[in-house]
Amino acid sequence: MPGGSSMLSLDGVSVSYGKTTAVDRVSLEVPDGAVMCLLGPSGCGKSTLLRAVAGLEPIGSGAIGWDGTDLAGVPVHRRGFGLMFQSGVLFPHLDVGENIAYGLRRDPRRWGRDQRRQRVEDLLELVGLAGYGSRGITTLSGGQAQRVALARALAPEPRLLLLDEPLAALDAELRERLVQTLRDALTRTGTTAVYVTHDQREAFAVADTVGLMQDGSIRQTGSPVDVWAQPQSEWAAGFVGFSSIVDRAALAVLVSDAGPCGLPDRQRIALRPAAFVFDERGGLEGVVEGILASPESLRLRLEVEGLGAVDAVAPPTTAVMAGQSVRVRFDPTACAGLGA
């Protein structure tokens, strides 16, 4: 929706602890109904930025606004934002239902007894925990606790939901399942959200827009597809899964058969592991230096003459050994030109 009816806007926001600058002049906008993902390694300042938006962290300079109104001086509890922590942080002395109803009690006229009960039931159903209302907090597993935390954050219908690595404390399989629950919940409720994570798969699954953060600054923003296809720096490329960077000239000599239109028109080119595929009839040869096995594929570290060390993938049943020479073919869809 052009010029969205409501919008989160950050203008040159900085946060410092003593002499350390955790967030350095960040500016961004999140339109109504969109999910913005802040993706970056741990310690890049993304959680601090999120807490600043929530009002939990005083900002050193800049402005955080909602709908054009500056939020400076609006205390945490009047911002109408929801926040979901990495580990539930549920109130241990309240049961599941009371935890979810906590945020509803600030507005007793809107949420009467019956509405509250109904709302709690709806949300439990939304997160797949119908009937858990009277359970104690200590009886929940990690994944259940995070679902309750999500329900609690969504219950008061926040204008904006802030999610601080909500799935980081869970194991991989659970994370995959919950990321779907989360995305469905955000979609069905049409909630505007800022989602902080260090996991690029999570970001890709959830975000409308991704902001890559490093050392307190946002380095690149765009839709997930754009950011993954067009990283603007070596760091960004490495962070979204490109494993090696080579000179276009050197690559062009070796893979002339890919045709000039197959290679991006940039001086330096980032390659995903899948850029080279094990193929006995491939046009390139390399010496295997290392092997990393996974159920889906083998990842080979190859030393290719004239190019240096690059990664390649092979079917998981391929019989290769370190030191062996193998042939690979080039797949131009798994590479990207670096820089603007």
């Binding site: 109130f91 906590y102 600030r106």
Partner: peptide, 8 residues
Amino acid sequence: QAAAVLGA
């Protein structure tokens, strides 16, 4: 903080 964010 969780309580404050929930409007307390």
